[in-house]
Amino acid sequence: MLYRITVRNADGEKLEIVVEMSEDEVRALAEELRKAGYEVRVEPIPEGEEP
């Protein structure tokens, strides 16, 4: 499935990426980023919607 991941650092800089991963993989990635001090938001992209 496609997911949009938005990551912000302490300075407020934002990075937005689209990935194709399983829900478990995305959850693990988000958890690791949060542990590293980043603010993370994950949104699933519905099938048929443009990323």
Rank of each mutant, 00 (worst) to 15 (best):
M1S: 07
M1A: 12
M1D: 07
L2H: 10
L2P: 12
L2E: 05
Y3D: 00
R4Q: 07
R4V: 11
I5L: 08
T6Q: 04
T6V: 11
T6N: 06
V7I: 14
V7A: 15
V7E: 00
V7H: 04
R8A: 13
N9D: 02
N9W: 08
N9I: 07
N9G: 08
N9S: 11
A10I: 06
A10Y: 05
G12W: 03
G12E: 02
E13Y: 15
E13T: 14
K14E: 12
K14T: 09
K14F: 15
K14P: 12
E16N: 13
E16S: 07
E16W: 08
E16A: 09
I17L: 10
V18W: 09
V18M: 10
V18H: 07
V18T: 12
V18I: 06
V19F: 03
E20G: 05
E20A: 05
E20F: 06
E20W: 13
E20I: 06
E20L: 06
M21H: 02
M21N: 03
S22K: 11
S22N: 08
E23P: 08
E23F: 11
E23D: 08
D24A: 08
D24Y: 11
D24K: 05
D24R: 05
D24F: 12
E25K: 06
V26T: 03
R27K: 13
R27F: 08
R27A: 09
R27C: 07
R27L: 09
A28I: 04
A28S: 10
L29N: 01
A30H: 02
A30F: 06
E31N: 12
E31L: 06
E32V: 07
E32W: 03
L33H: 02
L33K: 02
L33N: 01
R34F: 07
R34D: 02
R34M: 08
K35D: 02
K35Y: 04
K35A: 05
A36H: 06
G37S: 03
G37R: 02
Y38F: 14
Y38N: 13
Y38W: 05
V40Y: 02
V40S: 01
V40T: 02
R41G: 11
R41N: 05
V42D: 00
V42P: 00
V42N: 00
V42C: 02
V42W: 09
E43N: 07
E43W: 05
E43R: 06
P44E: 08
E47A: 12
E47S: 13
E47N: 15
E47Q: 08
G48P: 15
G48V: 15
G48Q: 15
E50P: 12
E50D: 11
P51D: 11
P51F: 01
P51Q: 07
P51N: 11
P51T: 09
